[in-house]
Nucleic acid binder design. Structure first.
Length: 480
RNA sequence: GCCCCCAUCGUCUAGCGGCCUAGGACGCCGGCCUUUCAAGCCGGUAACAUGGAUUCGAAUUCCAUUGGGGGCACCA
């Protein structure tokens, strides 16, 4: 019987949750859910210098937004220091590790020299075989040591990655890395190995940037006498310049996508498709199907560029698939925030419900809703008079069209879509205009825009009074 | 500099020796629909990095080359 699948997402709380990390989290979560296993959240807060207050909460909020629920945690490595210390000291005792008293300054100088000599930078093993006497001297001088792993002198370290297959490193290309820092905190290498073992993690699914430090982890497992987990390195997400996506590209936090009006289900679908595919044609996949069909085997080896154009398209697809009420509720906060101040708040929900269906299929992002519906919510329209004059029309016949329209519309008892259409289509012919011309004039008069939802529906929602008022105003504007 | 990984349309990808005169999607271009804008529908543009080898047969296997990326901290 094989152990139940346990995966973990182990971010460090050093900033906002970036999309690259989130994509990894999605893979971890999906695999756990697919296998009926557990997904664990672990916070790797071992670098006290870089900790950003609030980052943990932001990370969790990002996970929740995407619907990635965790079964255990968050565990905090800062609360488990004794475990790492014990492991490190045990390794020293057993000869797998040693205390190092070299100063950061000396190490930095050494590195510079190595680079200058075009040699691979790495620890020169000065403290590898200190005598008891030398150690005592350093201790007496009050120098706090780090603990370094004693990498075997010869041989190779090989492991099999689920995605990349068998990978081999010569041990002599790996330097004696630090496991425990002088402040008593572990480095990533030690902490993740100790924790992954303690938490019975079966599959370490993480970004490809970790591939080259994996032999260190294997070495650590061997020295500790633990069975290593299955390693699954996932391809990187790249910026437009094809280098690893980072702040440098203006890479955004997952929560910023929420602010920009992306739907979490679209984001999930899009992100999972960077580096994974179901088959040769599926693009839109539901969360349930993702869980049902997700397999590690279909993760690709090649890193991929984050293509915002495709995300926008996909978000539009998801927006259109929402039922109207759902769309309305999701758009509401964006309206509250994005509509100009003169729109009176709180917004009239009943009215919003009538407006939203008119724009649902016209937006790709929820942030576009306010601009597209502004004229429904503000009283004063601001547009140049010339905008009223449609293609191949003159000031004169535009005025005439507006005058006649105003009169006829004012005689209407009902103001619904059908009634309006039945009045206006024949009217265009009567005025000797193309329907497009008349509608264009009225559209501008009534909305101040040239691109809007369908005219009759728009007018019906605006209501008779407001339409007549705006047409009158348009006439004035054109006369002056 | 050293180590590791990767290599199909501009981008995301399918392809795991013959089904490939390489399929899908985004974008782009053209058309249809149409009161504008979208949406929708139809069509088009566009790729196996290069050179060897294996094989009856290679996008698929192997080896070089080239190119790209990642790593080489008391950061993760």
């Amino acid at each position: 019987m094989t152990a139940p699948v346990r995966t973990r997402f182990a971010p460090s709380p050093t900033g906002m949750p970036q999309v690259g990390n989130m994509r990894t989290a999605i893979f971890d979560w999906l695999f756990a859910r697919h296998c009926g296993g557990k997904f664990i959240l672990r916070i790797e807060d071992t670098d006290r210098e870089r900790i950003v207050p609030g980052a943990v909460e932001t990370i969790m909020e990002g996970l929740r937004w995407l619907g990635l629920d965790w079964d255990e945690g968050p565990y905090f490595q800062s609360e488990r220091l004794h475990l790492y210390k014990e492991a490190a000291e045990r390794l020293v005792r057993e000869g797998y590790a040693y205390y190092c008293y070299c100063s950061p300054e000396r190490l930095e100088k050494m590195r510079q020299e190595q680079i200058a000599r075009k040699q691979p930078p790495g620890y020169d093993r000065t403290c590898r075989n200190l005598t008891a006497r030398e150690r005592a001297d350093y201790e007496a001088a009050g120098i706090k040591p780090v603990i370094r792993f004693r990498v075997p002198d010869g041989g190779k370290t090989t492991f099999t990655d689920t995605i990349y297959g068998e990978v081999t490193f010569e041990n002599n290309t790996i330097d004696d890395f630090v496991m425990l820092k002088s402040d008593g905190y572990p480095t990533y290498h030690l902490a993740s190995v100790v924790d992954d073992h303690a938490m019975k993690i079966t599959h370490v699914i993480r970004g490809e940037e970790w591939l080259s430090s994996t032999p260190r982890h294997i070495l650590l497992y061997q020295a500790l006498g633990y069975e290593p987990p299955q390693y699954v390195h996932t391809p990187l997400i790249l910026g437009p310049d094809r280098s690893k996506l980072s702040k440098r590209h203006g890479a955004k936090s997952i929560l910023e996508y929420r602010e920009e009006g992306y739907l979490p289900e679209a984001m999930l679908n899009f992100l999972v498709l960077i580096g994974w595919s179901l088959d040769d044609k599926t693009e839109i996949i539901s969360r349930d199907d993702l869980i049902k069909y997700f397999t590690l085997e279909r993760i690709s080896k090649t890193s991929a560029v984050f293509n915002i154009e495709k995300l926008n398209w996909m978000n539009g697809v998801y927006i259109r698939s929402l039922n109207v009420e759902d769309f309305t509720m999701r758009a509401l906060p964006f309206l509250e925030k994005g509509l100009p101040p003169e729109a009176k708040r709180p917004l009239d929900i009943a009215y919003v419900r009538r407006v939203m269906p008119l724009v649902q299929e016209r937006v790709k992002k929820l942030t576009e809703v306010p601009a597209l519906t502004k004229f429904f919510f503000v009283e004063t329209l601001d547009y140049p008079a010339e905008l009223l004059i449609a293609k191949n029309m003159t000031r004169q016949n535009t005025l005439h069209a507006l005058e006649v329209s105003l009169k006829r519309l004012s005689e209407l008892a009902s103001f619904d879509e059908t009634v309006l259409e039945n009045l206006l289509r024949p009217l265009a012919e009567e005025l000797g205009l193309k329907t497009g011309q008349l509608f264009s004039v009225l559209r501008t008069a009534v909305t101040g825009e040239t691109a809007t939802p369908p005219l009759f529906q728009t007018m019906a929602v605006l209501g008779k009074d407001r339409c007549l008022r705006r047409i009158s105003l348009a006439l004035e504007k054109l006369r002056n």
